[in-house]
Every structure is written in C-alpha cells, then in structure tokens.
Amino acid sequence: MAAIHITDLEAAINWWRARTPSADGVTLAPPLRALAEVYAHMAWARRSEVEESALTPEAWAAWLAWYDTTPDTPCIAICSTSQGDAVCKGCGRSFDEVQHWPAFSPAEKRAVWRRIRAEGSAWRFNRYAERAADGGEVASK
C-alpha cells in the first residue's frame, strides 16, 4: 500500500474546513475531526506520511471525498512515452506509471503527482501550463 503525504492531508483538511465551517469556531464536522486526528498523530510522531491502511474508515472516506475533487491524471495529451521516451515530456510520468496508472491507488497517484510537481520539468509545468489549466489543473498546484 502507498502512503498519504502530510501535504495532501492538509489539503483535504482545508477543503473540508471550507465546506463545513465550524458554527462556533471550535466544533469540527465529523469528516474534519477524522482527518485532524490523523494529522495530529502524524505531527506528534514527526511523520510526513501515513499508510492508507492506517486511516480509520471515516478518515479514509473524508480523504477520498477531497481526492475526488483533484485531477486524476497529469496527462496533457502530449505523450512522448508512446514515442519511446522512458519519461513523458508532457506529464513527467515514467512509461510504467503511464501504463499502470488505472491500477494505481489514490495514494500512489498522489505520490506521482507530488514527484512530478517537485521535479517541475514536465511540459505541463512550463510550455503547456495553460493546457494543463484548461483541464482543471492549476499549473502551480
């Protein structure tokens, strides 16, 4: 199983905070509470990742609700792996990642997204950033 990075957990928490703001400034909605508990344990243990399997069913459902709002694939329809490149110039994924993408778990997909953003060399982040933005993805995200 893959791990969920703390930055994705933070994004999910912030998404839920915007969706279900606290009426009294203290009480958290159940999905937000479930994610906050995971986040607190990670912070206390000084961990940057948590295994998907370690999430409670409530935290997993809350994280998946946020995940469903993110773009599924980094593809911008310029696939150089079909031309023999080991890494796609368009999206930054390896040939294996492109081929096996549908079978990846949500956390595995987010790990690839995190890596290609950190590298920032794929065309989706420079030459064709507007194409990526048109597909629902913000290039600086």
Rank of each mutant, 00 (worst) to 15 (best):
M1S: 12
M1R: 08
M1L: 10
A2C: 03
A2G: 06
A3K: 15
A3H: 10
I4R: 08
I4G: 01
H5F: 07
T7A: 08
T7M: 06
L9P: 02
L9M: 13
E10N: 14
A11S: 14
A12T: 03
I13F: 00
I13V: 14
W15R: 07
W15N: 04
W15T: 00
W16H: 15
W16C: 03
W16K: 04
W16L: 15
R17K: 13
P21E: 09
A23L: 11
V26F: 07
T27A: 12
A29M: 07
A29R: 06
A29H: 15
L32A: 02
A34Q: 05
L35H: 05
E37R: 14
E37C: 01
V38D: 04
V38R: 10
Y39V: 00
Y39H: 14
A40Y: 11
H41V: 04
M42G: 03
R46C: 05
R47K: 15
S48Q: 10
S48A: 07
E49Y: 09
V50G: 01
V50E: 06
E51D: 13
E52A: 14
S53F: 01
S53H: 05
A54S: 15
L55H: 07
L55T: 02
L55D: 05
P57N: 09
P57A: 14
E58W: 02
E58H: 11
A59H: 06
A61C: 06
A61T: 12
W63R: 04
W63A: 05
L64D: 09
L64W: 02
W66G: 03
W66L: 06
Y67D: 14
Y67W: 15
D68C: 04
T69C: 11
T69M: 09
T70L: 14
D72N: 13
D72G: 08
D72R: 13
T73C: 13
T73R: 14
P74S: 09
P74A: 10
C75W: 10
A77F: 14
S80H: 08
Q83D: 11
Q83N: 09
Q83T: 07
D85H: 14
A86D: 09
V87D: 07
C88I: 06
K89Y: 08
K89D: 03
C91H: 10
G92N: 08
R93T: 11
R93M: 15
S94Y: 02
S94A: 12
D96K: 11
V98P: 02
V98C: 15
Q99L: 13
H100L: 14
W101F: 13
W101Q: 05
W101M: 08
P102L: 11
A103S: 13
A103T: 07
F104C: 03
F104S: 05
S105I: 09
K109Q: 15
K109V: 00
K109L: 02
R110W: 13
R114L: 11
R115W: 02
R115G: 01
I116Q: 03
I116G: 01
I116N: 02
I116D: 03
R117Y: 12
R117M: 04
E119L: 11
E119H: 09
E119N: 09
G120P: 01
G120D: 09
S121T: 12
A122C: 06
F125K: 01
F125M: 04
F125C: 01
N126I: 06
N126S: 14
R127E: 12
R127L: 11
Y128T: 01
A129H: 08
E130T: 12
R131L: 10
A133H: 03
A133N: 13
D134A: 13
D134R: 15
D134W: 12
G136N: 08
E137P: 00
K141V: 03
K141W: 13
